[in-house]
Simulated assay, not measured.
Amino acid sequence: MRASITSLNTALRHVPVWPVYAGSIGYPGWMLWRGVADRLGAEPVKVLEHALGEAALYMLVAGLAITPLRRLAGLNLLKFRRAVGLACFFFVVMHLLTWAVLDVQRLDEVWADILKRPYITIGMAGFFLLVPLALTSNNRAVRWLGPRWRTLHMLVYPAAVLGALHYVWLAKGVQLRPMIFLALVIVLLALRWRPVGGAVRRRGAAG
């Protein structure tokens, strides 16, 4: 098993990152083309809006899974983490613009919905938490912020919970897909948690 993981990690070193960026741009374009071609059903704006929101959640879950996969299975996908995170943010922005520009269409109503509808309120809160992460997802920001960069990027954890809750709350009644997303986020965040006492004991044993 370890040998196969090592071989897979070796192969992944030769896989370029650019397809993640290309796919994140191509998917909204393809969905928009389907809407223009009248292939998204009776409510194309709603279908596009929900598809982009789900795509953001898929990328969010994928980004959260990278560290547990490396820690528990030895699978090293770290080279893709920045691209996955930026793709997630791009999908969130496109989801937000589709809702605001194509669905609501009026700035005063956008603001009213943010204040009136709790699921939109928490969705916007998650979006604003992601903004500084996207702005600092470059090597210059890493060097400038130093150790604070890692602390700042822990904002992805509450953003992930808010995004999953936004999806659950948006769905009317208990639906399986939103609950699966929420469960995945909770599990992946739990896998990142390390008890302080356990870490102290391990250091003591090593000493």
Score class of each variant (00 low, 15 high):
T98A: 10
K172W: 03
M31D: 01
V93P: 07
M31H: 06
G26H: 03
V104H: 02
A3P: 00
L162T: 06
G41N: 14
I122S: 05
A3F: 07
D113E: 08
W111C: 06
L102W: 08
G204H: 12
L86R: 09
W169I: 09
R203Q: 07
A206Q: 11
P44Q: 05
A171Q: 12
R106W: 10
V187L: 15
A62C: 03
L191V: 04
V131T: 07
G126Q: 12
W169Y: 14
L182N: 04
L135C: 11
V17Y: 01
V110L: 12
L75K: 00
G123M: 13
G29R: 07
A55I: 00
L152I: 10
S137R: 03
G173Y: 14
Q175K: 14
L189W: 12
A206V: 01
L130P: 05
L60V: 01
I5H: 06
I180D: 03
A87Q: 02
A65V: 04
Q175T: 14
I66F: 01
A160N: 08
Y58P: 00
R140G: 04
V142T: 10
G85N: 03
D38M: 12
P147V: 06
F90A: 15
V47D: 13
A73Y: 12
V156G: 12
P68F: 11
L86M: 15
E49S: 13
T151F: 12
L96C: 10
T121F: 09
A87L: 08
L75E: 03
A134P: 11
A159Y: 01
V187T: 13
G35L: 07
A205S: 05
I25M: 13
A42S: 15
W18P: 02
A206W: 05
G204L: 13
L102M: 15
V142L: 15
G85I: 04
Y58K: 00
A159G: 09
A11C: 00
N139E: 15
P147E: 06
A37P: 05
A125H: 03
H50I: 03
R143A: 08
A62I: 01
N139V: 10
V161A: 14
A206I: 01
I122V: 15
L32R: 11
A62K: 00
M154D: 04
S4F: 08
T136F: 03
A42W: 12
F181A: 08
P118H: 09
L170Q: 11
M179L: 15
R13D: 13
A206G: 00
R34I: 06
A37L: 11
